[in-house]
Nucleic acid binder design. Structure first.
Length: 723
DNA sequence: GAGCACTGC
């Protein structure tokens, strides 16, 4: 077996120790790595091993800390070994900047101009050509590419980099690539190879997923980092967000007591300012929310202050809502933070939490995105790739079935799939758009009515970052708010969607858009990307309209209602009706009480409203809806039944049909056992509670006998059958 | 009367 080959270490039986010299992030390393000439990189000694391992195995895992050179050198080695004769060597990155800057560096090293031998492709920027042998791209780009070329016929090697980040797209690509090899598709090239590169991960599981493929480890150097638990936060403070004070305290202490060296501080939000006393010498203190957020120069960082928390966007399938939650970071993330102190010299990492917090509250690894985000778009993509059985898709880690069923339900409600879970013609069109299904559905309705010009700017504005500037200073904030109100009243004063359109159009047609933005406290950079997104969406619609069977419908209602009618087609899943006072109730079956966010033009206007639709929900201190618009009941009346008239079983029936009888039996038994386990757990919990109650002791024996009797009649019988 | 991370097509 290839896994037993000498130079290549199998991952079998290998633990994934948490130690600081193995935790890295590549993005920051990029500028720094430049200083090392590529001849000195540790990966060079493994060159032959790596090439051989790729030749011998369909899948290979390469691990190594940042700075080992795997991102830049491995594709080059494979090119030099002749792999690109059979197709492009594709390297994916989770982020655009990384894809572009790595491509630049490799092109430099190989002495060619970017876009020829070495190129990159990201959204809005394709810098590659027919001659491109090594192509860096975002993982999203590769996923898009697979919708046109599912067998990846153009590629000889696919390298998935930064696999440890476990982005939603990387996880989907894992499954798609695995499937490609399982099915032995006739069009798949014999020589397609897959390399997964990761800094830190549960490598045993990953290797097992890819058929126990070999793992090559590239060692690297790091200076020693002292780890100090400051004991300012313990397990009890898990829900408490007052850790900011602790972070400031530790930072000040470092500044006053420690030797020269810059400080890197990790917090969950941008702080307006962390005050440091006038410096005796000058010391730089960088406050960062997340490592990937900004490319920081980390030269000279000797001290890291780890606040211990991150902000995470989680999707709650029960409520159908996204929630921004502050959660403890994982041990592996903490080690990555630690590593940041030892890049250029030895350093110290101050953790504001104690050892108990580390042991009890921090998971080993972060929960991957696929298990905590809405899967609607991803499931639609899979359906378009003819993967109907989305429940049994080979996930590295299977998301909760509830999450998948919720996505199916949503897709059905948007007409993207039919009752039996098959993708519809409309669904295929929807997958063309890089937008949420709700928004896409609204755009397509507009296109059917021939009024897409109304919707495209709104869609573009909703898919870029928040355009409204909120200055920190109180007076300026007032001014900004007034300007924003001015804009919303120009849009009629009662429709946040229309406000976005007004901003888009006014800025675009102004003589100096940047000045216009300054005046109205709007982020010019966001608008620039909105302009580009609008162009891209317009192009997609143009192509769809060229199809001969593109539906064209007549709109016969009043003109001033057409925008909101289109929005209703997409957002009827997000309808709410006013209940008591300023509270609204969603109509999606959950009946969740919601409130209009103070940033909306409809805030404080609630008494005048009856029915509304909203773009998104944010749960902070209350459940808030943002980007709201009032509607009439008649517009959604016919659509609302669709919110309830579906059968989750039927929607996922594709999965069931393909499952053998035997599998169903096994699955049912598992469920039985699980239920029994749950029941037993609940009972023992109750028991523990009762034990604390003195009065109950006398009854304990009687209950015990009663339960024993029940068990001997009921549960044991079931167990015997399943055995 | 809120605020409050990041990425991607």
């Amino acid at each position: 077996m290839a896994a037993d080959r000498e130079p290549v270490r199998s991952s079998q039986g290998r633990s994934a120790p948490i130690s600081c010299h193995r935790r890295q992030r590549d993005k920051i390393q990029i500028p720094e790595e430049k200083k090392i000439t590529y001849c000195d990189l540790p990966i060079k000694q493994q060159r032959r091993k790596l090439i051989q391992a790729v030749k011998d195995n369909p899948f290979l895992i390469v691990t190594g800390r940042t700075g080992s050179g795997k991102t830049t050198q491995l594709p080059k080695y494979l090119y030099e070994a002749g792999f690109s004769k059979h197709g492009t060597i594709g390297v994916t990155q989770p982020r655009k900047v990384a894809a572009i800057s790595v491509a630049q560096r490799v092109a430099e090293e190989m002495n060619c101009s970017l876009g020829n031998l070495v190129g990159y492709q990201v959204r809005f920027d394709d810098c590659s050509s027919q001659d491109t042998a090594i192509k860096y791209m975002t993982d999203g780009c590769l996923l898009r590419h697979m919708m046109v070329d599912p067998d990846l016929t153009k590629f000889s090697v696919i390298i998935l980099d930064e696999a440890h980040e476990r982005t939603l797209t990387t996880d989907i690509l894992f499954g798609l690539l695995k499937k490609l090899f399982q099915e032995k598709s006739p069009t798949r090239k014999e020589h397609l190879k897959v390399v997964v590169m990761s800094a830190t991960m549960e490598l045993v599981g990953l290797s097992a997923f890819f058929g126990n493929c070999p793992v090559v480890d590239i060692p690297g150097k790091i200076f020693p980092v002292k780890e100090i638990f400051c004991d300012l936060i313990g397990p009890k403070d898990k829900e408490n967000s007052s850790y900011v004070n602790a972070v400031v305290k530790v930072t000040l202490e470092i500044h006053l007591n420690e030797l020269a060296g810059d400080i890197l501080v990790f917090l969950t939000e941008q702080q307006r300012r962390i005050f440091l006393p006038p410096p005796p010498g000058i010391r730089k203190c960088v406050v960062s929310t997340n490592i990937s957020a900004t490319s920081l120069t980390i030269d000279g960082i000797r001290y890291v202050v780890d606040g211990g928390f991150v902000k995470q966007l989680n999707h709650n399938p029960r409520l159908g809502l996204d929630m921004l939650e502050v959660v403890p970071i994982s041990k592996s993330e903490a080690m990555q933070r630690t590593g940041r102190a030892g890049r250029t010299s030895s350093g110290t990492c101050f953790r504001i939490y104690n050892q108990d917090f580390w042991n009890q509250c921090m998971p080993d690894y972060m929960i991957p995105e696929i298990k905590r985000t809405s899967l609607t778009s991803v499931i639609l993509t899979l359906k378009c790739l003819a993967i109907h059985d989305v429940i049994r898709f080979p996930y590295l880690e299977r998301p909760d079935e509830k999450l998948i069923l919720e996505a199916l339900k949503h897709l059905y409600q948007c007409d993207a799939i039919n009752r039996s879970g098959h993708v519809t013609k409309l669904g295929l069109s929807m997958a063309e758009f890089p937008l949420s299904p709700n928004l896409t559905r609204a755009i397509l309705k507009a296109a059917f009515w021939g009024c897409e010009d109304l919707l495209l700017p709104i869609a573009a504005m909703l898919s870029v970052e928040n355009v409204f500037i909120r200055p920190g200073e109180a007076e300026k904030q007032k001014e900004a708010e007034l300007r924003h109100q001015e804009l919303s009243s120009q849009a009629g004063g009662f429709n946040d969607f229309a406000t976005l359109a007004v901003i888009f159009e006014q800025c675009k047609s102004s003589t100096s858009p940047p000045t216009w933005c300054q005046r109205y406290w709007i982020h010019w950079r966001c608008l620039q990307s909105a302009f580009r997104v609008e162009g891209q969406l317009r192009e997609i619609i143009r192509k769809l309209k060229q199809q001969p069977d593109f539906p064209r419908e007549n709109y016969d209602g009043p003109k001033h209602e057409i925008l909101r009618r289109c929005l209703c087609t997409g957002y009827f899943t997000n309808v709410a009706r006013r209940s008591v006072g300023r509270t609204f109730c969603t109509m999606d079956g959950h009946g969740t009480p919601i409130h209009i966010h103070p940033s909306s033009a409809l805030y404080n206007q609630e008494s005048k409203l009856e029915w509304i639709i909203f773009h998104d929900v944010l749960v902070t201190s209350k459940m808030y809806v943002k980007t709201v618009c009032p509607i009439r009941y008649e517009w959604v009346k016919d659509l609302l039944p669709k919110l309830y008239q579906f059968d989750a079983y039927e929607l996922s029936s594709m999965a069931r049909h393909e499952v053998t009888e035997e599998e169903i039996k096994r699955w049912e038994n598992k469920e039985d056992l699980k239920q029994q386990k749950d029941k037993a757990m609940k009972e023992s919990l109750k028991k523990m509670q009762r034990r604390n109650d003195d009065k109950s002791i006398l009854d304990a024996r009687a209950r015990f006998l009663e339960r024993k009797h029940q068990r001997s009649q009921g549960i044991t019988g079931t167990l015997k059958e399943t055995d």
